[in-house]
Write a protein that binds this DNA or RNA. Structure first.
Lengths: 325, 325
DNA sequence: CTGAAAGCGCTTACAG
DNA sequence: CTGAAAGCGCTTACAG
């Protein structure tokens, strides 16, 4: 039998109303009374039932997060940033991935309708965008962490993809590399276009081959380009995973990195430190993006409306052996 | 204004009791009445408020998970296994990491007392073990995913560390390697002792150096051992991260892998496929461990008590280039 | 088969 | 400064 507000009230010789008041630190309580109530609370180890509080107040002090597969190499950082921020605010975090298709989307939608949480954080919505849009229109506060598309309807957090691409180009240029090969991600992603444009602004080239962010695609793209015999002295891969494939293809072809070819990736996933050679890359501040998005959502719930314009956090070039300074 | 059970009752011309009965599919409702109520529910898009249901029933249909830092390379798999299982059961998953010391442990403890969830999954409890034990004694169902220590008080899921160590030894032996070096993890972890014992049973050696599961420790341990000049033809590292350090030290010393030295790790983190050469390793079924632990907790909540003995899932040797067959 | 009423544990006008 | 009462949206004996 957990202790309830009624137990505290009885024990302290006051009404439940008064206990509730000291709980919620409303000023209108006699200092002595308040002290006595607080003692009883401590003595009994009383903690208000979150369900009951939620029902009475009409909010749950819980936010939800909807993510792509958690095995993506940078999800850990994003999640950790979100969890830390949400925990620090005294909120709970409900996690959904909708990894199992329709059924899981429905379960998720059900939780929304059941008012199980007050706000929602979404990472890279893909096939859930319609569902989320509908929820948002019905009044659910939503913040996106999204690089792929631009959804002006939602507050969002992104990163400086364009400047990130430019920084990669400047780095290669400073090292005297003038004939880069670019291995892109899927061209329908906004981040891919921005990374490409930023790079091309600084270091124009027509050596551009398409990939899809997987290691295999990086390897194949490199092999295909090598087969053409066109010379190149560096590679800018649009994410680290495909850069790993690039490194592998270059090694298999007997090209030395960075002596023959310098390689720069994007993301700075944990693996980037451990490739051979370690990968120079444009770091996305995933943890800070998570913190920031969570902060915006929490602020919104507290009454501060989220910014209309996307919040854009800076990338940072991390120089390692695959493309030294 | 979300629609409530009262709206449905009014619209269908029945009492809230009856609506509740069809919601919870209790048999004692006239088929026609039930059908009518169901129509109204669909028409109104009614979903019961989870908070109100929880309060009335005294349970939340939510489980919590307490994890080490989410940036650990295998946490994504565990989490995904848990999320999938929990979602499929129609439960919510509340995520805690207690990453910020005392304060976050207190927040977590508060949520427990607030009965925000019905059961708890814990991954590798370290400094939270006391807190968890106390909660468990007060009646909170708990399942551990834990390799490190053995806590007979809790139901738990682990993996065949001993057999995993043995399989690594058999693999090396079959390849004609008879002088292994072992780079261990922290000796106070149960999994480390088991991996060591399993290996030594098959392939005894006194070439054992201590590490702590980090890449740096693997590198330093290897460097130190190389400095002694003692010959060895293979390395068994107690986890993949330290195996990455081993590979690096060997390369720096000009030893070829696997020609001079074969290397076997443990875990099969994503990075293991991308090292140079790719890492042969003993795979822990992290996702299935997550699924299984979640399944046990859910079953317990549904009335099937969890097994007293730890559930032990099999490891699997993954052969790659660092120690070919 | 169905409903009125009490209860889950809180909060919040309202009155004093 | 304090309390009685209603209400949040459900479920569940109890009675019929």
């Amino acid at each position: 039998m957990p202790v309830t507000i009624a137990d505290v009230a009885r024990q302290a010789g006051v009404s439940k109303t008064t206990v509730s008041r000291v709980l919620n630190t409303r000023g209108e309580v006699d200092a002595g009374t308040a002290a006595r109530v607080r003692e009883v609370i401590a003595a009994l180890g009383y903690v208000p039932s979150s369900g009951a509080v939620g029902l009475a107040r009409g909010s749950s002090r819980t936010v939800a997060m909807l993510t792509p597969p958690l095995t993506w190499p940078w999800m850990g950082e994003v999640l950790q940033g979100v969890v830390d921020t949400v925990e620090a605010a005294g909120y709970g975090l409900l996690l959904f991935t909708c990894n199992r298709g329709r059924e899981s989307v429905e379960h998720f939608a059900g939780q929304v309708s059941a008012r199980a949480f007050d706000g929602l954080l979404v990472v890279e919505p893909e096939d859930t965008l319609d569902t989320i849009t509908a929820m948002h229109r019905k009044g659910l506060p939503v913040v996106l962490i999204d690089d792929r598309g631009h959804h002006p309807e939602f507050p969002s957090v992104a990163t400086t993809n364009r400047e990130g691409g430019a920084s990669a180009a400047r780095h290669l240029l400073a090292d005297g590399r003038s004939r880069p090969l670019i291995v892109t991600g899927r061209p329908d992603f906004g981040c891919v276009r921005e990374r490409l444009e930023g790079f091309l602004d600084v270091l124009p080239t027509d050596r551009v081959v398409g990939g899809d962010f997987t290691e295999v695609s990086g390897r194949l793209a490199t092999e295909r380009f090598l087969a053409t015999g066109r010379p190149f002295d560096s590679v800018f891969a649009h994410n680290d995973l495909s850069a790993v494939g690039v490194l592998r293809a270059l090694r298999a072809a007997g090209r030395s990195v960075p002596d023959d070819i310098a390689v720069v990736g994007f993301d700075d996933i944990p693996m980037a430190q451990h490739t051979e050679p370690p990968l120079t890359t444009v770091r996305q501040p995933m943890r800070r993006m998570g913190e920031r998005a969570a902060g915006m959502l929490l602020a919104h719930l507290a009454g501060t409306p989220a910014p209309v314009e996307p919040v854009v956090l800076p990338t940072e070039l991390i120089v390692r052996a695959s493309a030294p300074a």
